[in-house]
Amino acid sequence: WKVTVKGVEYTFDNPEEAKKFAEELAKKKGGQIHYKDGEFQVH
């Protein structure tokens, strides 16, 4: 499971962890999460 933040990729074994990480980042940066092709992208 991948989380991509401004072109930087983070990989997680667990989808729950990936989702949590993406949500935290989106909150911090005031961005939005897009889920696409099996990965979370924070913009």
Results as ranks from 00 to 15, higher is better:
residue 1 W to M: 03
residue 1 W to C: 08
residue 1 W to I: 05
residue 1 W to A: 02
residue 1 W to F: 08
residue 1 W to D: 01
residue 1 W to K: 01
residue 1 W to V: 05
residue 1 W to Y: 09
residue 1 W to P: 01
residue 1 W to H: 04
residue 2 K to F: 06
residue 2 K to G: 01
residue 2 K to T: 07
residue 2 K to Y: 05
residue 2 K to V: 07
residue 2 K to R: 13
residue 2 K to A: 03
residue 2 K to W: 06
residue 3 V to K: 00
residue 3 V to L: 02
residue 3 V to C: 07
residue 3 V to Q: 00
residue 3 V to G: 01
residue 3 V to I: 04
residue 3 V to Y: 02
residue 3 V to F: 03
residue 3 V to A: 01
residue 4 T to M: 08
residue 4 T to R: 09
residue 4 T to K: 08
residue 4 T to I: 13
residue 4 T to C: 13
residue 4 T to F: 08
residue 4 T to Q: 04
residue 4 T to S: 09
residue 4 T to D: 01
residue 5 V to S: 12
residue 5 V to T: 08
residue 5 V to M: 15
residue 5 V to C: 15
residue 5 V to R: 03
residue 5 V to D: 13
residue 5 V to F: 15
residue 5 V to H: 15
residue 6 K to G: 14
residue 6 K to N: 15
residue 6 K to P: 07
residue 6 K to Q: 14
residue 6 K to H: 14
residue 7 G to A: 03
residue 7 G to L: 03
residue 7 G to P: 01
residue 7 G to H: 04
residue 7 G to M: 02
residue 7 G to T: 04
residue 7 G to F: 05
residue 7 G to Y: 03
residue 7 G to R: 02
residue 7 G to D: 09
residue 8 V to Y: 12
residue 8 V to G: 06
residue 8 V to S: 07
residue 8 V to W: 11
residue 8 V to M: 13
residue 8 V to I: 12
residue 8 V to R: 12
residue 8 V to Q: 12
residue 8 V to T: 09
residue 8 V to L: 11
residue 8 V to E: 13
residue 8 V to P: 00
residue 9 E to K: 07
residue 9 E to G: 05
residue 9 E to N: 06
residue 9 E to W: 06
residue 9 E to R: 07
residue 9 E to H: 09
residue 9 E to Q: 12
residue 9 E to L: 10
residue 9 E to S: 14
residue 9 E to I: 14
residue 9 E to C: 15
residue 10 Y to N: 00
residue 10 Y to I: 03
residue 10 Y to R: 01
residue 10 Y to S: 00
residue 10 Y to W: 13
residue 10 Y to K: 01
residue 10 Y to L: 02
residue 10 Y to F: 10
residue 10 Y to D: 00
residue 10 Y to G: 00
residue 11 T to S: 11
residue 11 T to P: 06
residue 11 T to F: 14
residue 11 T to E: 08
residue 11 T to N: 11
residue 11 T to D: 06
residue 11 T to K: 13
residue 12 F to A: 00
residue 12 F to L: 01
residue 12 F to H: 00
residue 12 F to Q: 00
residue 12 F to R: 00
residue 12 F to C: 06
residue 12 F to P: 00
residue 12 F to K: 00
residue 12 F to V: 00
residue 13 D to T: 11
residue 13 D to F: 07
residue 13 D to A: 10
residue 13 D to C: 13
residue 13 D to S: 12
residue 13 D to V: 07
residue 13 D to H: 08
residue 13 D to G: 09
residue 13 D to L: 07
residue 14 N to H: 07
residue 14 N to L: 06
residue 14 N to Y: 06
residue 14 N to W: 04
residue 14 N to P: 00
residue 14 N to V: 03
residue 14 N to E: 05
residue 15 P to M: 15
residue 15 P to R: 15
residue 15 P to L: 15
residue 15 P to A: 13
residue 15 P to C: 15
residue 15 P to W: 15
residue 16 E to R: 10
residue 16 E to Q: 11
residue 16 E to Y: 13
residue 16 E to K: 10
residue 16 E to F: 12
residue 16 E to L: 12
residue 16 E to S: 10
residue 16 E to C: 14
residue 17 E to L: 09
residue 17 E to I: 07
residue 17 E to W: 04
residue 17 E to K: 08
residue 17 E to Y: 05
residue 17 E to N: 07
residue 17 E to S: 11
residue 17 E to P: 01
residue 17 E to H: 07
residue 17 E to M: 08
residue 17 E to T: 10
residue 17 E to F: 05
residue 18 A to Y: 04
residue 18 A to P: 00
residue 18 A to C: 05
residue 18 A to R: 01
residue 18 A to E: 00
residue 18 A to N: 00
residue 18 A to W: 04
residue 18 A to V: 01
residue 18 A to F: 05
residue 19 K to C: 15
residue 19 K to S: 06
residue 19 K to P: 00
residue 19 K to L: 14
residue 19 K to F: 13
residue 19 K to H: 09
residue 19 K to T: 05
residue 19 K to Y: 14
residue 19 K to I: 09
residue 20 K to Y: 08
residue 20 K to W: 08
residue 20 K to D: 07
residue 20 K to S: 10
residue 20 K to P: 00
residue 20 K to G: 06
residue 20 K to L: 11
residue 21 F to A: 01
residue 21 F to W: 07
residue 21 F to Q: 01
residue 21 F to N: 00
residue 21 F to S: 00
residue 21 F to M: 03
residue 21 F to T: 01
residue 21 F to I: 01
residue 21 F to V: 02
residue 21 F to E: 00
residue 22 A to R: 03
residue 22 A to S: 03
residue 22 A to V: 05
residue 22 A to W: 02
residue 22 A to C: 12
residue 22 A to K: 02
residue 22 A to M: 05
residue 22 A to F: 04
residue 22 A to L: 05
residue 22 A to D: 00
residue 22 A to G: 02
residue 23 E to L: 12
residue 23 E to K: 08
residue 23 E to S: 06
residue 23 E to R: 08
residue 23 E to W: 09
residue 23 E to I: 12
residue 23 E to C: 15
residue 23 E to A: 07
residue 23 E to P: 00
residue 23 E to D: 07
residue 23 E to Y: 12
residue 23 E to G: 04
residue 23 E to Q: 10
residue 24 E to N: 08
residue 24 E to W: 14
residue 24 E to Y: 14
residue 24 E to R: 10
residue 24 E to Q: 10
residue 24 E to A: 12
residue 24 E to K: 09
residue 24 E to D: 11
residue 24 E to P: 00
residue 24 E to T: 10
residue 24 E to V: 08
residue 24 E to G: 07
residue 25 L to R: 03
residue 25 L to G: 01
residue 25 L to Y: 13
residue 25 L to M: 12
residue 25 L to P: 01
residue 25 L to Q: 09
residue 25 L to F: 09
residue 25 L to V: 12
residue 25 L to I: 13
residue 25 L to T: 07
residue 25 L to S: 05
residue 26 A to R: 07
residue 26 A to M: 06
residue 26 A to S: 06
residue 26 A to E: 03
residue 26 A to D: 02
residue 26 A to V: 15
residue 27 K to S: 12
residue 27 K to P: 02
residue 27 K to G: 10
residue 27 K to C: 14
residue 27 K to A: 13
residue 27 K to I: 11
residue 27 K to T: 10
residue 27 K to N: 11
residue 27 K to V: 10
residue 28 K to H: 10
residue 28 K to S: 12
residue 28 K to D: 12
residue 28 K to L: 14
residue 28 K to T: 10
residue 28 K to Y: 11
residue 28 K to R: 09
residue 28 K to F: 11
residue 28 K to G: 08
residue 28 K to V: 11
residue 29 K to G: 14
residue 29 K to D: 15
residue 29 K to V: 15
residue 29 K to F: 15
residue 29 K to N: 15
residue 29 K to Y: 15
residue 29 K to M: 15
residue 29 K to T: 15
residue 30 G to F: 06
residue 30 G to L: 05
residue 30 G to I: 02
residue 30 G to Q: 06
residue 30 G to V: 04
residue 30 G to S: 04
residue 30 G to T: 03
residue 30 G to H: 07
residue 31 G to E: 06
residue 31 G to V: 07
residue 31 G to F: 13
residue 31 G to W: 15
residue 31 G to H: 07
residue 31 G to N: 05
residue 31 G to C: 14
residue 31 G to Q: 05
residue 31 G to A: 09
residue 32 Q to E: 10
residue 32 Q to R: 08
residue 32 Q to N: 08
residue 32 Q to S: 13
residue 32 Q to D: 08
residue 32 Q to M: 10
residue 32 Q to W: 15
residue 32 Q to P: 04
residue 32 Q to G: 05
residue 33 I to F: 06
residue 33 I to C: 09
residue 33 I to W: 08
residue 33 I to M: 06
residue 33 I to E: 04
residue 33 I to S: 03
residue 33 I to A: 04
residue 33 I to R: 01
residue 34 H to L: 12
residue 34 H to F: 14
residue 34 H to D: 08
residue 34 H to S: 13
residue 34 H to A: 10
residue 34 H to P: 02
residue 34 H to Y: 14
residue 34 H to N: 08
residue 34 H to K: 10
residue 34 H to I: 15
residue 35 Y to T: 04
residue 35 Y to G: 04
residue 35 Y to H: 05
residue 35 Y to R: 02
residue 35 Y to E: 07
residue 35 Y to M: 07
residue 35 Y to D: 04
residue 35 Y to F: 11
residue 35 Y to I: 08
residue 35 Y to W: 08
residue 35 Y to S: 04
residue 35 Y to K: 03
residue 35 Y to A: 04
residue 36 K to W: 09
residue 36 K to F: 12
residue 36 K to M: 11
residue 36 K to I: 13
residue 36 K to Q: 11
residue 36 K to H: 11
residue 36 K to Y: 10
residue 36 K to G: 07
residue 36 K to T: 09
residue 36 K to D: 06
residue 37 D to S: 03
residue 37 D to K: 03
residue 37 D to E: 08
residue 37 D to R: 02
residue 37 D to F: 02
residue 37 D to G: 04
residue 37 D to A: 04
residue 37 D to N: 08
residue 37 D to C: 13
residue 37 D to W: 02
residue 37 D to I: 02
residue 37 D to Y: 03
residue 37 D to M: 02
residue 37 D to V: 02
residue 38 G to P: 05
residue 38 G to H: 14
residue 38 G to F: 12
residue 38 G to M: 07
residue 38 G to N: 11
residue 38 G to Q: 09
residue 38 G to L: 06
residue 39 E to F: 05
residue 39 E to Y: 06
residue 39 E to M: 08
residue 39 E to G: 06
residue 39 E to Q: 08
residue 39 E to C: 09
residue 39 E to R: 06
residue 39 E to A: 08
residue 39 E to V: 13
residue 40 F to A: 03
residue 40 F to T: 03
residue 40 F to M: 05
residue 40 F to Y: 11
residue 40 F to K: 02
residue 40 F to C: 09
residue 40 F to H: 03
residue 40 F to D: 03
residue 40 F to I: 09
residue 41 Q to C: 14
residue 41 Q to G: 04
residue 41 Q to N: 07
residue 41 Q to S: 10
residue 41 Q to E: 10
residue 41 Q to R: 08
residue 41 Q to H: 13
residue 41 Q to W: 09
residue 41 Q to D: 05
residue 41 Q to P: 04
residue 42 V to K: 02
residue 42 V to N: 03
residue 42 V to I: 13
residue 42 V to P: 04
residue 42 V to C: 08
residue 42 V to L: 07
residue 42 V to Q: 03
residue 42 V to A: 03
residue 42 V to F: 04
residue 42 V to T: 03
residue 42 V to H: 03
residue 42 V to M: 04
residue 43 H to R: 10
residue 43 H to K: 09
residue 43 H to Q: 10
residue 43 H to L: 14
residue 43 H to A: 08
residue 43 H to E: 10
residue 43 H to D: 10
residue 43 H to F: 13
residue 43 H to I: 15
residue 43 H to S: 11
residue 43 H to M: 13
